[in-house]
């Protein structure tokens, strides 16, 4: 089970599928073993410091929209919206998404500007486990803001191993 798997026992095909998840319909996998990789909250902090250059990150202004209960960690919809007028004088320069426990913390880094009209991006990501996802916005005045959400990943009940 995703919420209980220790990295060391991620050995079943189903775990492999769930963790790494390149599988789409009909795509034949040849994977039987998964490397016991998981980032730590410290890795996430390092990734965030790399994004901010060590600048202070304030909580707020950033909204993450992710379904709170996800049965398939392979494809997790995620939308980030930042409170910003998106004018030439006051806008969002970048939006980053990082995770706490994925093998590598970074998910995506987007660069945008006043021409976006609204500070909103959506994507679909992989989540290896129940964990915290953080979005960070870099504003045109150089300040950083963040929002986070905890996502519960359950095993895809009734899902077939596509191996």
């Amino acid at each position: 089970m995703p919420s209980t798997c220790k990295p060391s026992n991620l050995t079943s095909r189903r775990d492999a599928l769930r963790l790494m998840g390149a599988a789409t319909a009909g795509y034949a996998l040849t994977i039987v073993r998964v490397t016991p990789l998981a980032a730590t909250p410290a890795d996430m902090r390092t990734a965030i410091e790399k994004i901010t250059g060590g600048a202070k990150v304030s909580a707020g202004r950033v909204h993450l929209e992710i379904p709170p209960l996800v049965e398939n960690g392979n494809t997790v919809p995620c939308a980030v919206t930042v409170d910003s007028p998106m004018t030439a004088a006051d806008h969002v320069r970048a939006i980053h998404i990082v995770t706490e426990k994925n093998p590598q913390p970074n998910v995506i880094s987007c660069r945008l500007g006043p021409r976006a009209g609204r500070a909103t991006v959506s994507t679909r990501m992989r989540l290896s486990d129940t964990q915290t996802v953080v979005a960070i916005a870099e504003m045109s005045n150089g300040s950083f803001w963040s929002g986070s959400v905890n996502i519960i990943i359950t095993l895809g009940a009734c899902l077939e191993d596509l191996i």
Binding site: T99, L112, T123, R124
Partner: peptide, 18 residues
């Protein structure tokens, strides 16, 4: 007008809306 750097945690068949 928009640029994104993608990492392995982006799901197969990358979907981006902006």
């Amino acid at each position: 007008i928009f640029r994104a750097e993608l990492f392995p945690a982006i799901a197969a068949n990358p979907f981006i809306t902006f």
